[in-house]
Write a protein that binds this DNA or RNA. Structure first.
Length: 357
DNA sequence: AACCGAAGCAACCGCCCACGA
DNA sequence: ATCGTGGGCGGTTGCTTCGGT
């Protein structure tokens, strides 16, 4: 059904950019009498605009409490965090960012943050690592072909970066599954949440087993497991509500696991999320930093992206971060001549999926 | 200097929902 | 219970600006 546009039948109603004179008419009228009925406002204010246009102009641009200018790092992080929970509920997100309008946040998301997340290998819709299995399935051949030359051109190099992001994403997903498996295994036990050391040991054992080789310190590609684990920890915290929604009995275990890991991280304590929409009530206004997402450890791709996009986390990551080692991530080493390593990984992932908690 | 494509953003469009008659 | 209206929302468009060639 719906209703007809408010300006239907109003021939000659002006559209397009507002002039300073129109702005003044609108501001003066609203400040003196309030907006009242938006439909009647244009005529009363002497504007040749439709009411809807007036309302939009006022709420998105002329309102005196609007904060203009560049989004701060904290605002960026908060938007990303809220979007991971609320989705495209821009008005809801805007209520947590005083002075920002839903339209402004929406535009900023579409033009900046969405690209930034994509560049980090994170799906901006699900906020999970991107895993294009069809691409991964073809990865061994692609990498083998790419490794056939030591002189990659620009396009080929770009492709390699994309492939590395996909590879990282696959590992993150695998690790998430392992964390869930660990939490479920621990669920029947009445014991308190595992300590950081105990949790780390258990995960290391699982990772070693899952890796299918005898080198417990490596998870392919020369990536130290503890580094990947912390990456997984960061990612797991961001996605915890979605992960635990299908396994409520183990959510506390998972939260505890992440809590204990997070307590010692350089980014400061960040409790296992478990954040509901009602929890958000306390995260607005001056407490913006209380609600921001945890700092994601940097990987090489992040640094490239942050450099290009004025990233939020690059400068704040200590130079001596253990994740600096990921700069040397070399996926070539992940691939056996027959590509069996990636095949194993994909099989492990499908096993995890078929045993969804 | 001129042209062109990309990026950014203000504004519009159409649908939906709440509410009152 | 139904219908019409006002207002709000998310998605999209198109203009402007910027940077590269």
């Amino acid at each position: 059904m719906g209703r007809s546009p408010c300006c239907d039948g109003e021939a000659g109603v002006k559209k397009g950019p507002w002039t300073p004179e129109e702005d003044k008419l609108l501001v003066d009228y609203i400040q003196e009498k309030g907006h009242g009925s938006w439909r009647r406002l244009p005529k009363l204010a002497g504007l040749n605009r439709c009411g809807k246009s007036c309302r939009l102009r006022w709420t998105n641009y002329l309102r005196p409490d609007i904060k203009r200018g560049r989004f701060t790092d904290d605002e960026e992080k908060l938007i990303i965090h809220l979007h991971s929970i609320l989705g495209n509920k821009w008005s809801s997100i805007a209520t947590k960012l005083p002075g920002r309008t839903d339209n402004e946040i929406k535009n900023y998301w579409n033009t900046h943050l969405r690209k930034k997340l994509l560049g980090m290998g994170i799906d901006p819709v699900t906020h999970r690592p991107r895993t294009d299995l069809s691409l991964l399935a073809g990865l061994p051949a692609l990498l083998a072909a790419a490794s056939g030359t030591n002189n990659l051109g620009g396009a080929a190099a770009w492709d390699m970066n994309a492939l590395r992001l996909q590879a990282d994403a696959a590992k993150f997903q695998l690790l998430q599954g392992l964390v869930r498996a660990l939490a479920t295994a621990a669920a029947p036990a009445p014991a308190p949440a595992p300590s950081s050391a105990a949790g780390m040991d258990s995960l290391m054992a699982l990772l070693a087993a899952s890796n299918g080789n005898n080198n417990a310190a490596q998870l392919g590609g020369g990536v130290d497991q503890s580094m990947l684990l912390q990456q997984c920890q960061w990612d797991g915290m961001l996605n915890l509500p979605a992960l635990t929604s299908s396994a409520p009995t183990s959510s506390l275990q998972i939260s505890g696991l992440f809590d204990s890991f997070g307590a010692g991280s350089s980014g400061g304590h960040y409790a296992g999320d478990g954040l509901s929409s009602t929890d958000l009530e306390g995260h607005g206004g001056s407490n913006v930093t209380d609600a921001v997402a945890p700092q994601r450890p940097m990987v090489a791709a992040d640094q490239n992206n942050a450099h290009a996009a004025g990233g939020v986390s690059c400068e704040e990551t200590p130079a001596a971060s253990p994740f600096d080692g990921l700069d040397s991530l070399n996926l070539m080493d992940d691939i056996n001549t027959d590509g069996s390593t990636w095949k194993d990984l994909l099989e492990q992932m499908s096993w995890l999926d078929s045993n969804e908690l």
